[in-house]
Design a protein around this nucleic acid. Sequence first.
DNA 1: TTGTAGGCGTTATCAT
DNA 2: ATGATAACGCCTACAA
Lengths: 356, 356
Amino acid sequence: MRQIAERASVSIGTVSHVVNGTAPVRPKLRERVLEVIRNLGFQPSALAQGLRTNRTRMIGMIIPDITNPFFPGLVRGAEDVAFKHSYRVILCNTDNDPAKESLYFNELRSYRAAGLLIIPAAGSDIASSLKPGTAGIPPVVCIDRRPDGWTGDSVVVANELGAYRATQHLIQSGHRHIAVITGPSLLANSVERLKGFRKALKEANLPLPAEFVQEAVFDTRSGFQAARRLLRMLPRPTAIFACNDLMALGVLHAIHELDLRCPEEISLVGFDDLEFCEYTSPALTSVYQPSYQLGATAANLLLERIKGRKGSPKRLVLDTELKLRNSVLPLEHSSWSVSRMPRTARKSPRKVAAAR
Amino acid sequence: MRQIAERASVSIGTVSHVVNGTAPVRPKLRERVLEVIRNLGFQPSALAQGLRTNRTRMIGMIIPDITNPFFPGLVRGAEDVAFKHSYRVILCNTDNDPAKESLYFNELRSYRAAGLLIIPAAGSDIASSLKPGTAGIPPVVCIDRRPDGWTGDSVVVANELGAYRATQHLIQSGHRHIAVITGPSLLANSVERLKGFRKALKEANLPLPAEFVQEAVFDTRSGFQAARRLLRMLPRPTAIFACNDLMALGVLHAIHELDLRCPEEISLVGFDDLEFCEYTSPALTSVYQPSYQLGATAANLLLERIKGRKGSPKRLVLDTELKLRNSVLPLEHSSWSVSRMPRTARKSPRKVAAAR
DNA sequence: TTGTAGGCGTTATCAT
DNA sequence: ATGATAACGCCTACAA
């Protein structure tokens, strides 16, 4: 800026004023300054600005793993609204490691990030990082999972209800022997989904043998392994509820491997409704989570806080929606319309499919 | 730091020394300072540090869209090596919009990012942003695509060779009527893949009717539409090479919609080898791109530059690998082993599949 | 409408 | 081994 001031023969303060529009500057001078700025390709130092004003336009986003297809949409949602407000996003992958999480947390504090968006790691202890006493902690919004003891803003999805509905769907389709593949028991959302599953079963007075509850870790491989165990049992369940789509994909794989047919011999419902659900075969019935909205909503919440909203924390809960596709076989007809039946059970399945 | 200095009754310079280990400090003092630091939850301001030292540990990463499943792995690769060297990544999505790209570019300059990792937007003009004259431009490494006029470091994939091999595979499987669905003609990698495709056809003296080259935009929907056009032609191609997997997915969808069977009636090869390839039906034969390596390699290259390596630009080219699965039907047996044949063509397909 | 100057939180140089 | 102090680049009263 000094250099610019010299070349345009004005004071350094004036340069600042034309850059920020913080005071009226005579057009002639203004132009001269702008011209020099263009020539020099000057970019004001965000570092110096941040230091001086004590606020930055960076938002830290801490997530488990961008490689998990559930997260990119969420990140994108957050980034889009951040962008709209001229904020930028620093992305941090924790691999669900609380140590890495707290490392990132402190670093982002170091960068004086204006706010933090956190999808807590399994077993996260960030709640304790926010204890009063330490100053200079930016606003934080938790997304997707609410860690133990978290009392701040958060936006999550109605996991229990979603799982409940998915299970109900299976039950209404006539299934009586339904197994579940859960995620890590450390994850709040995993636990909630299991709860919803159990609730639906209980309401229908259906038994749940202990071995029909298999724990996996929300990835395809572990879902595959869990499914293998399930599919070899006698009597075999006629339907499986996988607590996320990645595991459901593993189930599909196991079904094929064991020479079974889906949905004829085994029905399947997933959770997340990732894009690939439309393209698996059979297309996977799944519980849609508004992941983009999750990220966008959280970012909006955070921006409010950054702008100074006080008051009690908001705990937003977004709704899910069961997307019906072809991985569930109705065992009884009951109230089901033909169009919802899987292709192989229809008179002229291919024509119907083509007409969709 | 002033506060800490006071509470520990030392000078502010000493505090700096214990924080950075930049000069020996008597253990007793050291401990005292550390204690205060812990109590106060002090985090040095990266802003002030950056301002003072004129370097930061932030790497800007500009990509088209994190929501495209090809990019998360790449980003993760870059982030992992950055992390190992204590650098952090600022993620920016351009949506392939050159304007947004150049906006981000300037902002990252403003943040005094130590270096930039860029996957250029289609039609990118960043090459021109780097013209000498403007000072304070950090090292830049281009990934995946090399924009027009780019002379700096870059790491890309052997697109032409990959496409060439994929096409050869189709030809060797006996196909004579092969169509291609290309990506945007603005994208260097898209053009290269088409080139490889053409080369293989030419070498085999196979004709390529103009209408057998359909342009789409690297997403599922456009791939679907292009496939529809292709599949309604008479004579219909017996094989399609889709220049990326997302489009291949669209092709698969179109095949099902039109009541055709893959690979019996139409063979298909994709490009990228995204995770879902294993789980589509049939499992998709595709050209594997080492996306994680792409990101990691680029980050390493960038870090070298940041550490001061001079000298001529490196243009790294990573190799691809054709992953054989079940979406290609051998029309002639030639040298093909039974195990590579699609399930439906085998005597006891399910057993074989299960044994895999 | 424009200029002056102090200070944001560090690091680094130079004394002590 | 420790302390004092001058930048780093910018913003912002305040003075002119």
